[in-house]
Design a protein around this nucleic acid. Sequence first.
DNA 1: CGAATAGTGTCTTTTAGACAGTATAAT
DNA 2: ATTATACTGTCTAAAAGACACTATTCG
Lengths: 267, 267
Amino acid sequence: MPDSEQDFLAAYDPHAYDPVAVTVDVVALTIRDGALHVLLVRRGAPPFEGMWALPGGFVRSVRDAEDLPDAAARELAEETGLSAEGALARVHLEQLATYGGPGRDPRMRVISVAYLAFAPELPDPRAGSDAADAAWVPVGSLGLTEAAAQRPGTTRRLAFDHARILTDGLERARSKLEYTPLATAFCAPEFTIPELRAVYEAVWGEELHAGNFHRKVLSVPGFVEGTGETTERGGRRGGPRARLYRAGDARLLHPALLRPSREEEVR
Amino acid sequence: MPDSEQDFLAAYDPHAYDPVAVTVDVVALTIRDGALHVLLVRRGAPPFEGMWALPGGFVRSVRDAEDLPDAAARELAEETGLSAEGALARVHLEQLATYGGPGRDPRMRVISVAYLAFAPELPDPRAGSDAADAAWVPVGSLGLTEAAAQRPGTTRRLAFDHARILTDGLERARSKLEYTPLATAFCAPEFTIPELRAVYEAVWGEELHAGNFHRKVLSVPGFVEGTGETTERGGRRGGPRARLYRAGDARLLHPALLRPSREEEVR
DNA sequence: CGAATAGTGTCTTTTAGACAGTATAAT
DNA sequence: ATTATACTGTCTAAAAGACACTATTCG
């Protein structure tokens, strides 16, 4: 039987063809105490029982016929306890990539569609249905390197190929902050320029020049818009009150806010 | 039965859970006669029989347990007749996005992982196994607009949600040319700066200033490296012979080659 | 020859970044 | 008072873009 006919039959009778499971996994990032954190769950069942993993689960394809972004939002809501009408509406969610290599799940062929989420500071998560625990974990504590991302198990912390997915998500996040105003998705509805700078510093892992950053943000059309208000108090250790801003209407930053020192990544 | 247990059982007995099919679709782009073309196949079977579609097919998940990029390369090879050792090795292939909304295939739930390919000029394709026809089609002839991409069937030419996938692939291609040296993937192994400029003009749909483009390309480290040779003849309608270049070792362009006039897309 | 094209020179404007300086508020 | 901080001013270097110009080759 030629491939075409086999495929055709398979389409009408899926059980006659290769069994595949489709899941969504979410790389949810937030800033806590000035450091970038990722939402992780501790697996309560094999495989990788007891290890940390990205929150995720199977896509409901028949019962609810949910779309992929809906599935990602649902997984995020289940782990964070957020309601769709509430704080979840302020979370930025975008598709990251799909991971489908054979052998990434020992049980069967699993295709995982990964999503990337940028969230403002959220309460501590509660453990979801099939997780033993859930927590915001500082990204820096995971010992992620390119080598660790490529060889599963090297970090000894993340299940499946989740180190690779997280590494890809972090790079996407760093890049997104260059060309889009999505750093504001990590902030409260009203924020100061120094708070925005702290987001960039946490995601990029680099200190930025406060004065130049300030002027740059204000010079990009549509990045932020002033509220006319200021904070109630000055900085922790002194300084004047900072002006408050809201996210502007730009969807792209032009000119972009490029991160410094990328020489090493070019070749 | 709680979700977790159901999921767990499903993982061990996939037939007990929702049936899903996973396919790969390829947005293969090339430059012909100075215009951007996409590889399309005419469907030889329902649904959408007789309509144009992106080349694609089911992922072999058990028989060969192929990885997703391998599946995309296989689909591309089947439609173009290219061998993996030959010209296919010079084609750039990257994952684009995954499309999995319910109802995008009337037969069943289908998750499509889309890939984006940049190819140098290739021979005309032969019709693959389940296609009635295959051809390089000028992108400009498809009447793609944002409205057409959102409502399937509006262009009256592309099956499924392939207008949306193609639109996303084109935007990705335009963006990739800004930040990476991948325009060279559309060229022969040795090329001239004006040929490279023609790639940019075809993908961006804009004329570029020849002199400034020339200097800019040469000023970006690692973009191109000279061969010391020149073309045998001058331009079609006169002009000196052009120097020949190869792709350099840069993986990112720094500084980037930004396309002009993006004011309208910012908001 | 005339026209088209490859490649370079030069000038202006924009942007990035270094650095300094002033005013404000916490301790 | 001291110190940290928000924000602004200024200068320099890098880059983008407009324009002009020369040299070469085709028809």
